[in-house]
């Protein structure tokens, strides 16, 4: 990834918005970044194609999971400034509330950073940060092959 490599060579933190803009799947979901200093909030603006249950209506569980996975990967790229994207090893998603058809926000916290594996915790919420709609805990590989 050019964005990551350039930041790595220059010893800078990569621009998270440029990173998600360079990933087709993030564009497909419509993910945006709100960066305030070193604090990153990912934003999933509501769109009709993200709905999984049209009767409620509610966001698709896979979309919420994918959004939190992107949140984790962006946070790892930002904090570790590595030359390539982190790869998921395993993730566990807890669905806490149904995702209503409004914008969703995400924030990731690196729990433990090892040489090869990083443990991350992500929360996704809508209107109220204190009422998360889902949480993700996962391990991501940051160096070496597979």
């Amino acid at each position: 990834m050019e964005v990551l490599r350039r930041a790595f060579q220059e010893g800078m933190r990569p621009d998270p918005q440029a990173l998600v803009d360079s990933i087709p799947y993030c564009q497909f979901l419509g993910i945006k970044i709100d960066r305030k200093g070193t604090e990153i909030t990912t934003i999933l603006p509501y769109a009709e194609h993200l709905i999984g249950n049209p009767i409620l209506p509610a966001l698709h569980g896979g979309v919420i999971g994918a959004f939190m996975e992107v949140t984790a990967i962006v946070q790892i790229a930002f904090e570790t400034s590595g030359p390539s994207l982190a790869k998921p090893v395993d993730i566990t998603i807890d669905y806490l509330r149904s995702g209503r058809p409004v914008d969703t926000y995400g924030r990731a916290h690196i729990t433990k950073q090892g040489k090869r594996v990083i443990n991350v915790h992500v929360e996704a919420w809508q209107e109220e940060h204190t009422k998360p709609i889902a949480a993700l805990r996962g391990h991501f590989l940051v160096a070496g092959e597979d």
Binding site: F28, H60, G61, G62, A66, E69, L85, I91, I93
Partner: peptide, 19 residues
């Protein structure tokens, strides 16, 4: 191609597998 997670490898994003 819209589902690609890494444009350098062309590999589909893990989020699609999740969905």
């Amino acid at each position: 191609p819209r589902f690609v997670g890494n444009p350098e490898t062309g590999v589909v994003h893990g989020g699609i597998v999740t969905a």
